[in-house]
Design a protein around this nucleic acid. Structure first.
Lengths: 108, 108
DNA sequence: ACTATACTTAACCTTTTGGTAAAGTGTCAA
DNA sequence: TTGACACTTTACCAAAAGGTTAAGTATAGT
């Protein structure tokens, strides 16, 4: 599922850092790569992970590929986590309604 | 980092489904395993992933191990995602303050 | 004591991930 | 036109992930 890949993309600190950087505005791939102690192809692979779940869009003009953030998939991730908010907020008076939101499906 | 493991734990639909189940109350391992088309050791491995990042606590009494939800790590994940909320809500009037929240550190 | 239950552990297998190095391609600029 | 730059592609590697089966251990019930 898409949600799988979004959460997976977020499970690496380099990729989260990349999101932090592209959130500030378009960045070139090589510019981005300077921030990390790894080869450029490695950074490109991380961008591939972020791109395949839609978190980062790229646009190549000339020889420069610019990367920008698309936060829409983060909303999907947030919506999923949101269901559990009552548990860490301790609003057990609202627990019932939240439990009803949780699916009762047999298997995934 | 812990956040790595939390997001990683959430990147699998079986594990997310397990969270949905334990949220409803304590469940035994074998009871849980009945829901999935995989062997019991496979389910135990998923529980290991969920346990190692703190999302699921277990308590063995007799020969039965009961699993319960601990949503605290979800709050950490939510806090991270929350920083980006402005991007999918399109509140670009507030963009500036959110950008300041994003860390400016050189490398992770 | 015997047996079924509920895990637990171990060994193994395949695929995916995250990285590398090195060579190739396309574009800009002097 | 020549060279530097910005990727891009390819081939490779080690480790981790997700699953399997099979055997082992501890407890509960008869």
């Amino acid at each position: 599922m898409t949600l799988d890949r979004v959460f997976y993309a977020l499970s690496d600190s380099t990729r989260r850092d990349i999101l932090g950087r592209v959130a500030r505005g378009p960045v070139a791939v090589s510019e981005l790569a300077k921030r990390y102690q790894m080869s450029l192809p490695a950074v490109v692979k991380h961008l591939g992970v972020l791109g395949s779940c839609g978190l980062v869009k790229t646009d190549k003009v000339g020889r420069v590929r610019s990367c920008t953030l698309d936060a829409a998939p983060l909303k999907a991730a947030d919506d999923w986590i949101e269901t559990y908010r009552v548990f860490w907020e301790g609003r057990f008076d609202r627990l019932g309604e939240y439990l009803n939101e949780l699916s009762e499906d047999p298997a995934p």
